[in-house]
Write a protein that binds this DNA or RNA. Structure first.
Length: 477
DNA sequence: ATGTGC
């Protein structure tokens, strides 16, 4: 492990105040010895840099999928006081409300007689790839409504069932969304893209439940051994990207205006209640709602394909849950025995609220919030449950996935995509992508093993495994 | 992640 870092437990490490100048609180990250070789010094420096920001509460935190990102590390969690704290686009990332959801089916693996045909049909139906455009024709007014209402907009327009909203984090709608803070350029990019998958690590995967770790929780979540499920991983496409770009520019000058000293210009930020901070937050919330609509419309498409191919009812494919991986939210937390409203940034981290909280849907309240951890291409995904430990230690947060260990560029030259596709097929996993080059960038060995990441959060008690899902086939941009 | 990059 790096010099100057203190071991707290087998899976927790402290970055002390003074590791970089100006730290207001220590950093804490969760990692096992066997993952320590994946740790980048630059990511730890970023974790420490975040601890210098005004109003940061208790710790700058990172999960075991930590790696370096724009300003804040990916895998990072940071909470700020409402009155003295800041909001920062670097703490959310470019892909606002990149997230993942899981839908179940009444089918088992034996019912999928022709997996290739299923994957091809999904690939034909769900627009996929860089610059992919939707078959929906949205007016400017539609886009405004969609950004204000999130998942409810999609349900009201025939892309889902009433129960879907209840099973999304935040009910699939951030109330503070301010569509007026979303630029014309962001709207132009977003309008044709609602209901598209995108590219990179985004995917739509058909999976089978292949291990159950917690039968009671699995039952509550509606998951059974051998069951076929669909996982959708995507974000806010060009709209969220443009919102981040636009507001970064504004916040760079706001940082100077408010006299905030930052060790890295990528930490551009503004006070939570400044006009600039509120404008970013409102636009970010609008982009988050757009991302929820995106996943909801794709859900509708997936249900339609399954209903047609297998003769099952649309209603037989309920949404287990939908989580955000990149978002800032106002949340109430206990801090040193006091109830406080905080601006919690999660960037490549998942909310993992424990049992008993009203934010957790009624059907899951005694269990804890479902946490969905997508695997990298060809590897297992997990469903976990949130815990009281996460509430006490990480502002109710856990890891978000495997975490990259190889750059896209490096991965592109490491192994040809065709080879990866053929190797996965030998393992019985179908990969359908827009190009072999995009498969190469997402090579399984470009990521940490998700099993090891999940094992760290389990040992730390931040979330507990419920089921594991094995890929049957995947479509990718 | 992204109408992909110096």
């Amino acid at each position: 492990m790096l010099e100057g870092i203190t071991k707290i437990s087998e899976v927790e490490w402290e970055v002390p105040v003074g590791y970089v100048p100006g730290m207001r609180v220590p950093g804490r990250f969760f990692l096992s010895e066997d993952l320590s070789e994946t740790l980048e010094g630059g990511a730890v420096q970023q974790l420490a840099n975040v601890a210098t920001l005004p109003g940061v509460v208790r710790y700058s935190l990172a999960m075991p999928d930590i790696h370096s990102g724009y300003g804040f590390p990916i895998g990072g969690v940071a909470a700020f006081e409402e009155d003295t704290g800041v909001v920062s686009p670097g703490g959310v990332g470019y892909d606002i409300n990149c997230g993942v959801r899981l839908i179940t089916t009444p089918l088992t693996i034996a019912d999928i007689k022709n997996p290739r045909a299923l994957i091809e049909e999904l690939f034909r139906t769900v627009p996929t790839g860089v610059g992919a455009e939707s078959t929906m024709r949205l007016s400017e007014a539609d886009l405004d409504d969609l950004m204000a209402d999130g998942v409810d907009w999609a349900i009201d327009h025939g892309f889902g069932m009433a129960a879907d909203a209840e099973h999304c984090e935040e009910k699939g709608q951030m109330q503070q969304a301010d569509p007026a803070a979303v630029s014309k350029k962001a709207r132009q990019r977003g309008r044709p893209q609602a209901g598209t998958l995108g590219s990179g690590n985004h995917f739509l995967e058909v999976q089978a439940v292949d291990a159950i770790f917690d039968p009671e929780a699995a039952k509550a979540f509606g998951l059974e051994a051998g069951q076929i499920c669909c996982m959708i991983h995507c974000g806010s496409r060009g709209l969220g990207h443009q919102v981040c770009t636009d507001h970064l520019r504004v916040l760079e000058s706001a940082t100077r205006k408010y006299g905030i000293e930052i060790p890295d210009r990528q930490l551009a930020c503004a006070p939570v209640h400044s006009p600039e901070g509120e404008a970013y937050f409102g636009a970010m919330a609008a982009a988050a709602n757009y991302a929820w609509v995106n996943r909801q419309v794709i859900t509708h498409q997936v249900r339609t394909v399954f209903a047609r191919l297998f003769g099952i009812a649309y209603e037989e494919m309920p949404l287990v849950y939908d989580v955000a991986h990149n978002v800032a939210k106002r949340e109430e937390h206990d801090v040193d025995g006091k109830r406080q409203t905080l601006c919690v940034h999660r960037k490549g981290a998942t909310r993992a609220f424990g049992p008993g909280l009203t934010e957790v849907p009624q059907a899951y309240r005694s269990i804890g919030q479902p946490v969905i951890i997508p695997g990298s291409m060809g590897s297992s995904s997990y469903v976990l449950r949130g815990t009281a430990t996460a509430m006490a230690r990480t502002f109710g947060s856990t890891c978000h996935g495997a975490g990259r260990v190889m750059s896209r560029t490096k991965a592109k030259h490491a192994t040809p995509g065709r080879e990866i596709r053929e190797e996965l097929l030998k393992q019985g996993i179908i990969v359908r992508a827009t190009s072999d080059a995009s498969i190469a960038e997402e090579a399984p060995d470009a990521y940490k093993e998700s099993d090891k990441v999940v094992d760290v959060v389990r040992r730390a008690g931040l979330s507990l495994p419920v089921v594991r899902l094995h890929p049957v086939g995947v479509i990718k941009g």
